[in-house]
């Protein structure tokens, strides 16, 4: 599904990604672990199309299509979803309006009928309940005044509504207490299936107690330095990045 080959990228002339090769087959969940500054967030932004990153070499394809040539909204329409490490606040934009606009933009791009306000309400209520969120969140402005945990749950709510094929979760566990972590993990696990892949980017192993990855990759200094099964995450937690990568 996602195939990254020898990808290099820089920001402001500074090379961050130094040749990443990685493949996430359909239906699999892969974790990327790495210390601060290893390039984890850069990888997620490059894959989702944020401006300011220059791709200097290599490729990234999604179901055979060149991902890097697409606009961010085209990537979303193709089924790529980025759960932001720092969800952005949108004062003056109601959460319900935002979610419905996004859902309908994707449905339009996919040639599906748009949902009206009533259909949307019904759809979103079910997802909100599953995430143990308050319905008030729909009435508030997007992420404005949300706690850290509420912001992350709002990301997972968006994912649940938009039903991507590939979800990139950028440190979705940071700032979550253990209960919220479980809810978020349940949200991701509920989407698992033959047509859903995920790239779970995390600093710590604890999220992976709840979302068991098929593969774990260690990202250090802009390169994947080691790949293994779920046990690699435990090894990293016990022994630290420096030792495992050595």
């Amino acid at each position: 599904m996602l195939k990254i080959e020898n990808l290099t990228a820089e920001i402001d002339g500074k090379q961050i990604l130094k040749g990443i090769t990685l493949e996430v087959p359909a239906g699999e969940v892969h974790a990327i672990m790495g210390p601060n500054g290893s390039g984890k967030s850069t990888l997620s932004y490059v894959l989702s199309g944020r401006e300011g990153y220059e791709i200097t070499g290599g490729s990234a394809t999604f179901n055979g299509i060149d991902l890097l040539a697409m606009e961010p909204e085209e990537r979303a329409a193709a089924g790529v979803f980025l759960a932001f490490q720092y969800p952005v606040e949108l004062p003056g934009v109601g959460n319900a309006n935002f979610l419905r606009t996004a859902l309908n933009a994707l449905r339009r791009a996919r040639g599906e009928a748009e949902v009206d306000a009533m259909q949307f309400l019904k759809l979103s209520r079910a997802k909100i309940k599953a995430l143990q969120m308050s319905e008030d969140m729909l009435k508030r402005n997007v992420n404005v005044g949300f706690s850290g945990g509420e912001k992350k749950r709002n990301e997972v709510l968006q994912m649940a509504l938009l039903e991507p094929k590939l979800a990139i979760l950028d440190e979705t566990d940071s700032g979550l207490d253990i209960d919220a972590l479980k809810i978020v993990a349940d949200g991701v696990n509920a989407m698992r299936g033959p047509d859903f892949s995920a790239l779970v980017i995390t600093h710590y192993q604890r999220l992976l107690d709840h979302i068991t990855p098929d593969r774990v990759h260690v990202l250090m200094g802009g390169r994947i330095v080691k790949t293994g099964g779920p046990e690699l995450a435990l090894e990293l937690e016990a022994e630290g990045y420096a030792k495992v990568a050595a």
Partner: peptide, 27 residues
């Protein structure tokens, strides 16, 4: 950052700009 957030959710750039302009005026 706001513009990218909207676009990353599939909202076309022009619609995203319009949403942010209206949000600014809504207050």
């Amino acid at each position: 950052a706001q513009l990218f957030y909207l676009r990353a959710r599939g909202i076309p750039a022009d619609t995203a700009r319009a949403m942010l302009v209206e949000a600014f005026l809504t207050e």
